[in-house]
Design a binder for these strands. Structure first.
Lengths: 204, 204
DNA sequence: GGAAAAAGTTTCCTATAGGAGACGCAACGT
DNA sequence: ACGTTGCGTCTCCTATAGGAAACTTTTTCC
């Protein structure tokens, strides 16, 4: 019994959905629950319809700015933040987490990268865990190089970080380093086991 | 009981900070002019229709949240960020490292912070390790809140991260989270030992 | 367990958001 | 004067937002 009137909109490039849209309903529902309000109470307080609120929370509609504004006020989400400041922080009002080992894997020849919190697409920093295979390359022909800054923290194993213009740096668990990733860089595991490092990269 | 819907919604007074319907169009027009964009250019950049933008600017419509979000993004952050950021990187050609436990310590009542790579002063990300004391603190009085984004990685112990608008998140070693640090946040150790977390914070 | 109430969802319908393109109207250059 | 070009507005139309109410699910209280 699913009439499902969702026919192809021969019209719209409107079919587009922003990742933010996805989260919006969730945010609102959580905020409402947080305040212990029912749909009816919240809707009334925001002067909107009960059904409208339900649809918004389930992402079944594309609410108007005005409606969202009222909801934000009612639920005490800071409205200005959501817009104006989204220019500064691309993750305004959002959060994402990743359980151990459950990141999105991306393997290359020398590394095994596990992207963390990758569902939060608009974030400015990019955190990932890399497994650097033991007994691998001992020299680079190709430095890695990308405009920005990078922070690295050694989780386990032992490795040598090569950074252009600097002496190689031998690092063990718990050590950390911060560098201009525009300089050529790369590392090599020198322990018997693979080395694990946490990287946080910032573009620009 | 219908006359005036001024009930005690806990909504507070007219602390309306969000652009009101009347002003919204004007704001947007000004922002667009500021950037020297024509209707067509701005609309295209925001992936909306030229006429739609015109109507919005003249307050002849009640635009959807999604449309406004796109406009805000286009008009506020668009290209500038890309340029600004590249000239912002203050660590050009530099590197700094910190050995385990040798960071600069900064203790507060609830946390014990160890700043990493703190000699590199002009870096944009701020990495530090915090020891969250195992204790009975089950309640916050004060959320931490600062404009920007934050990444957290649990090194050891078990804790609960509280983030405004979200459910508390129980985390163990190896788990990570990324969030808008403009939202109130804070955490509490729930293991018997102190919990250790690595934080990387980005302002703005 | 079962009835009643409460919370949430879906349906139905009207008003309108939003896009395409026509139109208006300056400011040019020839 | 007359095109021409570029920018903003207006008209027209379809898809859909949003409210009322019907419906379904969950919770509460005998």
């Amino acid at each position: 019994m699913e009439p499902i009137p969702s026919e192809e909109t021969g019209l719209g490039p409107e079919a587009m959905e922003a990742p933010d849209g996805e989260v919006l309903g969730k945010m609102i529902r959580e905020a409402r629950k947080e305040k212990g309000l029912t749909l009816e109470e919240a809707a009334k307080a925001a002067a909107i319809g009960r059904s409208t609120l339900s649809k918004i929370e389930n992402n079944q509609t594309r609410p108007s700015f005005e409606i969202i504004r009222r909801l934000m006020q009612t639920l005490e989400l800071e409205t200005p933040q959501l817009f104006v400041q989204s220019s500064q922080s691309g993750v305004t009002g959002r959060r994402d987490f990743t359980r151990t080992g459950e990141g999105e894997h991306k393997e290359t020849s020398t590394y095994d990268h596990e992207l963390l919190c990758s569902e939060l697409t608009s974030k400015r920093m990019v955190p990932y865990i890399s497994t650097i295979k033991a007994r691998d390359v001992t020299e680079f022909d190709n430095w890695v190089r990308h405009q920005g800054e990078e922070f690295m923290f050694v989780l386990s194993g032992e490795l040598i970080l090569y950074t252009e213009h600097y002496r190689p740096l031998r690092m063990g668990a718990g050590d950390s380093v911060y560098y201009d990733s525009g300089m050529g860089h790369g590392c090599v595991s020198v322990s018997k086991e693979d080395a694990k490092v946490l990287w946080v990269s910032l573009e620009g």
